[in-house]
């Protein structure tokens, strides 16, 4: 029963959990930044007039979205060393995998964002003499990004939760750190409860902030 929880163990394990949490956050931030950049390129490819670009981007997105993330993680962990010819380690493998995987999801959000910008904005930009790249960079993408900011952030919260799956390849994230501490002190119950609490506190707070942001960022029309 819960009345004999050992809080001393919890206190002793905090520094180690902190290093795990730092890796989870690093993975989230890297995959978010890389995923949004690569995802935006994917979105532009999916909306381009060239069939080859359109179809390959669509294939990339649809394939990654229909297999479990866990399988994607295992795939990259197996394949990256085969291609590069040297072991890259669980942490680096996780960083690469999450960036490429999340790009498929951020890309779909950015595509919806680009399509949400009124057609007249593009026409006006082109009429002003801006080229494709300029009108995208200076007119369409900033608006698309602003429209989609709450959705992008919600996806990031999901991404943060998903980083716990690097457990499968042995990278030391928050969950793995908790598991190791639980084994070392032989108190797994405390550790799993603690780690659930940490994830909940972070995700709940962030989702509340996103909800407040939602009302603020809407472009007045």
């Amino acid at each position: 029963m819960l009345d004999n929880l050992d809080l001393e163990v919890v206190r002793a394990s905090l520094p180690f959990l902190w290093t795990g949490l730092l890796f989870s956050l690093k993975l989230t931030l890297v995959a978010m930044t890389g995923g949004i950049v690569f995802g935006t390129l994917l979105a532009l490819a999916r909306l381009s007039p060239f069939a080859v670009l359109r179809n390959s981007a669509a294939a990339y997105v649809n394939i990654l979205r229909s297999i479990p993330l866990l399988m994607v993680i295992l795939w990259f962990f197996l394949v990256i060393p085969l291609i590069s010819g040297k072991p890259v380690g669980a942490e680096n493998s996780a960083l690469i995998t999450f960036t490429l995987f999340e790009a498929a999801f951020y890309g779909e959000i950015m595509r919806a964002g680009i399509q949400s910008v009124p057609r007249g904005q593009v026409d006006a930009a082109r009429a002003l003499g801006l080229g494709y790249a300029q009108s995208m960079r200076d007119v369409v993408l900033p608006q698309a990004f602003r429209n989609m900011l709450p959705v992008l952030l919600t996806q990031t919260i999901i991404l943060f939760q998903d980083t716990s799956l690097v457990y499968a390849i042995g990278a030391t994230d928050l969950l793995k750190a908790a598991e190791i501490s639980g084994k070392n002190y032989n108190r797994p119950v405390e550790m799993y409860l603690l780690v659930a609490l940490i994830y909940f506190a972070i995700c709940f707070t962030l989702s509340r902030l996103v909800r407040r942001l939602q009302a603020r960022v809407a472009i007045p029309r």
Partner: peptide, 16 residues
Amino acid sequence: FRNIPLLVQMFLWFFV
């Protein structure tokens, strides 16, 4: 149920 990763929930049900 939405703010705790599924993997952590698995461990909670199984071990805790």
